[in-house]
Simulated assay, not measured.
Amino acid sequence: MYAQNTYFRDSAPPSQALLDSVNGTSTRKEAANKSASSNQAEDLQATFLRLLIAQLQNQDPTSPMDSSQMTSQLAQINTVSGIAQLNVSLAALAAQLTAGQQTQAALLIGSTVLAPGNSAAVVEGKSAGFGLQLESDATDVQVVVKNSAGQVVDTINLGKQSAGTVPVSWEPKDESGNPLPDGTYTFTATATVGGKEMPLKTFSTSVVQAVVKQPDGTPGLALSNGTIVGLNDLAAIV
């Protein structure tokens, strides 16, 4: 980027670090540090302007600096500055979105939701049920319920179902109609689509107990079954 026909009369040539700054070498290395992106752009712009002034003051009168080259350099430095400002704006927007998600998550405390899982609790002979998700319409949906020992205690035939989230109300009784004892049961579901049988995604019914901060900074929901899920993982609020 530095003009080859430029010479210096009274001052020493710029350092390699200064030239690297103008050429963008050091800027590319520092771009990974998002928290300092705005300051880096301002420093680079100031460095470029100092170098440009030095070029103009010390250029060869018989071979002045090419104006098109100067215009190109100005455009490049403005682009770098604009990208840095955009990164700052996006970071502020992301912070606002996260704050809004935390508020939404807090409103769900105490609510019963369908979250990814394959367990159903039976308490005092009752169950809150569970949920399934179908990617497409199915001609037949079957649910198999097992006890803690892995024994099949109930088979539920849901028949034909449309695509989407399907809440299932389960009465905890075995296939003979006898009440099942309290405890935690697991279930799996399959659907027949186009003559082929395929497994379905299942959801457990839980109560939102608290809102926690996840490792990526987004809010998570602490559920009564001991798991933590994100807002986007919920299938429904029941």
Rank of each mutant, 00 (worst) to 15 (best):
A105C: 10
I77D: 05
G159K: 02
K213F: 08
S206P: 01
V152R: 11
L132V: 02
P167V: 09
G220F: 13
Q101C: 09
G100C: 11
V166R: 00
A189W: 04
S21G: 00
T184N: 06
Q214A: 13
I156K: 06
Q161N: 05
T186I: 06
T190Y: 02
Q151K: 15
A75K: 13
T186S: 03
V80S: 06
S68F: 05
T79P: 03
Q101H: 12
L93I: 06
M1A: 15
A94P: 10
V113T: 03
G183Q: 12
I156L: 08
T27N: 02
T71I: 07
I156C: 07
L134S: 04
Q85E: 07
P181N: 10
A92S: 09
D182P: 05
V122A: 05
T47E: 06
L19T: 03
S206K: 03
A75W: 10
F130P: 00
T62R: 15
E42H: 15
S136R: 14
S162Q: 13
T62C: 06
F203W: 04
P181S: 14
V211Y: 12
T192N: 04
G82P: 00
E42A: 15
D174Y: 10
Q133H: 03
I83F: 12
A12N: 13
L49M: 12
V143M: 02
L107V: 14
N225P: 02
A46D: 07
M1F: 14
S81N: 14
E197I: 03
T139N: 15
S206D: 04
L44E: 08
P116K: 09
D20F: 06
G220I: 11
A36N: 08
L51H: 03
T227R: 06
T192L: 05
S68Y: 04
A138W: 05
M70N: 01
G164R: 08
N147E: 09
A120V: 05
Q45C: 06
L107P: 09
V238K: 12
N225T: 07
K160Y: 08
V208H: 02
Q209Y: 11
L86H: 10
S38W: 12
K213Y: 07
N33Q: 10
L93A: 10
P199H: 03
G164H: 03
W170R: 04
Q214F: 09
A121R: 11
E171C: 03
A54H: 00
Q40W: 13
G226Q: 10
P13R: 11
L114W: 02
Q214M: 15
A17N: 06
Q73E: 05
S21V: 01
P179L: 13
S63P: 07
L90F: 07
N39R: 15
N5M: 08
I237M: 01
S136Y: 13
A17D: 05
L107G: 14
Q57L: 07
G217P: 11
S21W: 02
L132H: 03
T188F: 00
Q102G: 15
P116I: 07
L93Y: 12
